[in-house]
Design a protein around this nucleic acid. Structure first.
Length: 628
DNA sequence: CCAAATGGCGCC
DNA sequence: AAAGGGCGCCATTTGG
């Protein structure tokens, strides 16, 4: 069934490879951490023959020869979640394979909107090749008690991981051609090695600075929390025993973890009943109230005369100036977020071997075609200077960060061919100023900051279909006023909104939306059995958003491809992170200016590929750290 | 007891 | 009653 790939069979392997169009491959390792895992097996199917390379027995030299040959053969490499295999192969051969077909990514592209989560190899094998793959045997490589001795059974099961890739690929491409998705797939596939290389590169963080921020956050958070609890204690009159007990009955304070007594826990009420001293009662609440608990907060706020039904920022904002506690709570939450998400746990992502953070960038992580980022998420780092500053360049390098100026608004204007928007951008007037002009009957130079900010909110809301109700809430005006302002803007950009309306109509009928590159997002309408109108309204919003946000994603992805493929500076210029409309890179000092200009050029080239009526504008920074 | 859901909030 | 698109992560709560 399979042959071992070694010195004796290498020529045979070469012959089989030359006789076929595709190379299906997979790697077995001791863990998912490609920077520190052991490398056990490399399975490869060529010309219907599976070869297995035992890495520990055959060694790195032969492996490098094999990979070098595969790379130079120019054949298409098929893998499921290719990023993983590419990283393993790179680590043990120093060759980053290109010309990849990733069945996992392609599945996400051809079924975007139909899928619930990632399709596993087993699921695809079942769907396309009608075979059932067993799972347990593959887990053996990860097992704690695996002693490195690979059994015949394990070899046999390892074959399954490459045997059906070609069939899966062929079925997917058939579907891709029917759906006219080949251009999107071409872009996504060319991007796979680009993302892989970015993940291998990682990004450097100033840990010392980061820790300092955590300390500050801790101190500030503690202060807020104390003030907050004191406020509640006073307002809710916890001081006297009766109201204290009443509070305990309504506020769902968690039972106290006991120290190995019979139940393991102590009822809060019972514990409190034993306390009569006023100061002790107050102290009891100080230690047992949890202001991180939404349900406790809700009761406490309500009893303090703040009649909210939720405790989120949007709801609380109204009371911010009226009640000190509300302001304090929101501030407390800000600090809390910094401790939990952006605190010391974040630094656990620094890899011990490289000293850098190697996030996962998922190129099909969103329904719109945008990237997502995880472990850690590098796409939601606080925008404030103190945090961005912690992202630094390696010695001799600088950080370059360039973003598209008003990427989505320009696209919306360009796609709809709205004359007002086109004219505005031609005159270097941005969309928010332009909207402010419409709203307040002004000339661009007369618009003041506050008016522009107002317009900005409106633009964002209207482009993505906020209801009058939502808009009124955001702006703090009545629904009628909100509607009047909305109509004024709609009339100010007649073509934009006519086009939007048209696209939404199309999406609802076609049950799918397409970006300029052709990227599809499917919508389900058949399982809508209640509130049909609401469901359709949602599809309209998501569909139009897909057109704009998705085309923007196409643009950024194309730009990244240009940067990678046309990079004349080699390792002196490396991309680090995709930030939706921004590319962050590490550039060696001696080519800093040229490198910066080069990335700008590539981004503009990608922008101009999509936009024919409106100029692509990029802006950015270069320096020791990441800045806006 | 742990896994999934929920509420909340960081970013573009 | 809810009422703007796209995410991921955290702490708490819920449910099996």
């Amino acid at each position: 069934m399979y042959k071992f790939l070694n010195r004796d069979t290498f020529t045979e392997f070469i012959d089989d490879t030359m006789a076929t169009e595709f190379i299906s491959l997979d790697a077995e390792t001791s863990s998912l951490d490609t920077l520190s895992c052991k490398f056990y097996l490399f399975q490869v199917m060529v010309n219907k023959q599976v070869y297995i390379f035992n890495a520990e027995e055959e060694g790195q030299e032969l492996f490098t020869k094999i990979i070098d040959f595969i790379q130079s053969s120019g054949k298409t490499i098929i893998a499921h979640n290719a990023k993983f295999d590419l990283k393993v192969i790179y680590r043990f051969s120093n060759i980053l394979l290109t010309n990849v077909f990733d069945t996992m990514i392609v599945e996400a592209v051809v079924n975007n909107g139909n899928r619930v989560k990632w399709a596993s190899l087993a699921e695809l094998a079942e769907a396309y090749a009608l075979v059932l793959l067993s799972k347990e045997e593959r887990q053996e490589f990860y097992a704690e008690d695996f002693d490195g001795v690979i059994t015949n059974e394990m070899y046999t099961y390892a074959c399954q991981d490459v045997m059906y890739l070609e069939t899966i690929r062929n079925c997917q491409m058939e579907r891709a051609e029917e759906l006219k998705l080949t251009r999107v797939i071409d872009l996504e596939m060319k991007l796979v090695p680009v993302i892989t290389s970015m993940e291998i590169t990682g990004v450097l963080i100033d840990e010392k600075k980061w820790r300092q921020l955590e300390i500050i956050a801790r101190e500030e958070s503690e202060k807020c929390k104390n003030t907050l609890i004191d406020f509640f204690i006073e307002k809710v009159r916890i001081g006297d025993a009766d109201s204290a007990l009443e509070v305990v009955d309504t506020v769902k304070i968690k039972d106290i973890n006991g120290k190995k007594n019979a139940t393991g826990r102590v009822s809060v009420r019972k514990a409190l009943e034993l306390i009569t001293d006023k100061d002790a009662i107050i102290d009891f609440f100080r230690t047992n109230l949890n202001v991180n608990s939404g349900s406790q907060l809700l009761v406490l706020l309500n009893r303090s005369g703040i009649p909210v039904k939720a405790t989120n920022e949007k709801v609380l904002k109204k009371y911010r100036s009226k009640h000190v506690a509300v302001d304090m709570l929101l501030t407390y939450r800000e600090w809390g977020k910094k401790i939990s998400t952006y605190g010391l746990t974040f630094l656990e992502s620094v890899h011990p071997k490289t000293g850098r953070i190697h996030s996962d960038f998922n190129q099909m992580g969103t329904q719109s075609g945008r990237f997502s980022s995880s472990k850690p998420n590098l796409q939601n780092i606080p925008a404030e200077k103190a945090y961005r500053e912690c992202f630094i360049a390696r010695k001799g390098y600088k950080i370059v960060a360039i973003d598209y100026s008003q990427q989505e608004y320009r696209l919306a204007g360009d796609i709809s061919k709205d004359a007002v928007i086109i004219e505005s951008y031609k005159n270097k007037v941005d969309m928010h100023t332009s909207t402010a002009c419409i709203l307040y009957n002004l000339k661009p130079e007369e618009v003041v900051k506050e008016q522009r900010n107002h317009a900005k909110t409106m633009n964002f809301a209207i482009l993505y279909g906020t209801s009058d109700y939502g808009l009124a809430k955001t702006l703090g005006v009545t629904e009628n006023e909100a509607n009047a302002m909305k109509m004024k803007i709609i009339n100010g950009y007649p073509r934009l909104f006519k086009h939007k309306e048209m696209m939404e109509e199309f999406v609802v009928n076609a049950k799918k939306s397409r970006t300029l590159l052709g990227r599809i997002r499917f919508f389900k309408t058949e399982d809508v059995y209640f509130d049909y109108e609401k469901a359709m309204a949602q599809i309209r919003r998501e569909g139009y958003n897909h057109l704009i946000q998705g085309t923007a994603a196409d643009m950024t992805k194309l730009a990244m491809l240009y940067v990678y493929n046309e990079n004349p500076y080699g390792d002196k210029l490396r991309m680090l992170m995709p930030e939706h409309d921004e590319i962050v890179a590490e550039v060696k000092e001696d080519i800093l200016d040229e490198g910066y200009g080069f990335i700008c050029d590539m981004m503009i080239k990608a922008g101009d590929f999509f936009m024919k009526n409106i100029e692509t504008v990029v802006e950015g920074t270069k320096g020791d750290c990441w800045t806006k």
